[in-house]
Amino acid sequence: MTKKVHLDHAHLLHLLKAMIRIRHFEAKCVELYQAQKILGFLHLYDGEEAVSVGVMEALTPEDAIIATYREHGQALARGVDPKCLMAEMMGKLNGCCRGRGGSMHFFDRKRRFYGGNAIVGGGLPLALGVALADKMQRRSAVTACFFGEGAVDEGEFHETLNLAKLWRLPILFVCENNLYSMGMAVERAEADIDFVHKASGYRVAGEKVDGMDVVAVESAARNAIDRIRRENDPYFLECRTYRFRAHSMFDAQLYRSKEEVEAWRKKGPILRFQTWLEANRLIKPEEIAAMEKEIDVEIAEAVAYAEAGGLEPISELERFVTMDEVPA
């Protein structure tokens, strides 16, 4: 039983807007990085927007998310306030983690966003725990666990898939396969690059989906979540996608050709969806213009909020190393 996505006008606009928001947010981050207002690593999600946007559409506020270090898109798509994300990027006290986490470590307890994790594969065992806690407390929530295909190289992937199936935990595994773990091409790292097949080795059902097609991702994620809730069983989605920009800001991209990047850009999730909407007269050019303007206002507000934010006093540096209580 395949569930169709309700493609009414409002929903189409919403999907497009969610992807453009991520793209523009990150473009602003690059500017701020060049201005040295954002420091450290900056791993852009540019090209992969359809994956987060599509998957998040299928989740409810009760569901939980485990994210990666490329989680700007995952957090924005989940509805985390761009203001506190931008402030976090700039290391400010009004950032979502008071400037302690930065680009790779967004957390939002209220939205059950259990963090960007910068150890490849390190989030997978956490997903087991969050899903197990929900199950033991008789909550019907699903945990969406995002990871790149590089995580499949790690033991945690294998341990986690096995346990998820063994304990029948409600986890949606979302493999963002962008074909490279830093510079390592997937076929140079994995003897078997059929990840759905690998998941089936742990008897976890799954499917491949075109990660450049937001509607396909949403549809697959909705079906997957329904199946997880219905059958009390994990599910695996491999989203084929591509990272248009460098791994981080320190990457000369010696491992792939410009032609390859260009060919993928032509299949870009925003370009493709917008072109399709326009060709089918589902959206008017002025609607797109208005939408982009709204997003740019939103991002300008986020930057202003971040700029205005104070700094965590150094006297607070050791606060939260140990907690005084478990937050309610």
């Binding site: 259990y114 087991l128 725990g129 197990l132 407390q137 945690e156 986690t160 096995n162």
Partner: peptide
């Protein structure tokens, strides 16, 4: 790694 990480996750989610 998986069951200790699962311990961390359950602790984060109320157990």
């Amino acid at each position: 790694s998986a069951f200790v990480g699962a311990g961390v996750g359950t602790a984060m989610a109320g157990m």
